[in-house]
């Protein structure tokens, strides 16, 4: 592999994909578990980028111990939303507030979601959360940045009261769709210290990500559930 920073390579992949019409793109992510060091930068980067409230983590990192002392090792598994091709969450939403967009991202329409939480129950990965209106700093209004617009989905939503979306709504990782539209990679990809997160257009045979996942040492989490996730793990 060239010694170019992978961010640069993926960035050009992204620009190439954005030139295509949206329904020809298919966004996917690959995470190299050999390189993930369990630093949790992706978790906090995502919290910062999407201004998520307490207890909502779009991309937590699971740490698993393998083996017994002294033959012991660890595996770190970051878990964004899998953006499944056959999701269990979208069929159950009664008002079609969550649906799979034509570019592969499963989005939530904050204006439609009624907060029934059926999708939280139905997700096999526990990737969805509900925003009930907690603030980190009690009810510190005024100086708080927590009511500012995070720009999710390219729209403006200010979490002012519990009658303002996204409070009351389901929320989840959306591959930073607001960043993609502007030509930037997802936050977790750009902040990953181990350079373990890859992002790109799965429909593009020249992209870095497609080359990485076409190998035998690649798996998808809970693939046997038939959800066809678009997040691949390289081991």
């Amino acid at each position: 592999m060239e010694d170019r920073d992978i961010l640069e390579i993926m960035h050009s992949d992204l620009q190439r994909a954005l030139k295509k019409p949206r329904n020809q793109r298919r966004w996917g992510m690959a995470i190299d578990l050999k390189k993930c060091v369990g630093c949790h930068a992706c978790t906090t980067g995502c919290m910062s980028e999407n201004l998520t409230p307490p207890d909502i983590h779009y991309r937590p990192v699971k740490e698993e111990e393998i083996g017994e002392f002294p033959n012991v090792s660890m595996r770190f598994l970051p878990r964004p939303c899998m953006q499944c091709d056959a999701p269990t969450c979208t069929p159950v939403c009664p008002v079609t507030a969550t649906y799979k967009r034509d570019d592969g991202i499963v989005v939530i329409d904050y204006k439609k979601c009624i907060g029934c939480r059926y999708c939280l129950v139905a997700c096999s990965y526990g990737a969805r959360s509900v925003d009930v209106g907690h603030y980190y700093t009690g009810d510190m209004k005024g100086e708080t940045y927590e009511v500012e617009n995070s720009g999710e989905y390219g729209k403006s939503f200010k979490r002012k009261t519990h009658w303002h979306s996204p409070i009351g709504n389901a929320r989840k990782c959306h591959f930073c769709s607001h960043r993609i539209e502007k030509g930037e990679l997802t936050r977790c990809t750009t902040t990953c210290l181990g350079h373990a997160t890859y992002f790109g257009d799965l429909n593009d045979p020249q992209s870095l990500i497609v080359k990485l996942i076409a190998k035998v040492n690649v798996f998808r989490y809970k693939e046997e559930m038939g959800t066809k996730p678009l997040v691949y793990y390289i081991v």
Binding site: P91, V92, C93, P94, V95, T96, A97, K112, C113, I114, G115, C116, R117, Y118, V130, D131, V132, W163, S165, I167, G168, N169, A170
Partner: peptide, 26 residues
């Protein structure tokens, strides 16, 4: 009292989802 946004219940009429048991239940 359970719904996050009860004021949006009219969405059942505006954009229903026939694959959802909750819609049929309504």
């Amino acid at each position: 009292t359970e719904m996050g946004r009860v004021d949006r219940m009219y969405m059942f009429l505006v954009s229903p989802n026939p694959t959802s048991p909750m819609f049929w239940m309504a």
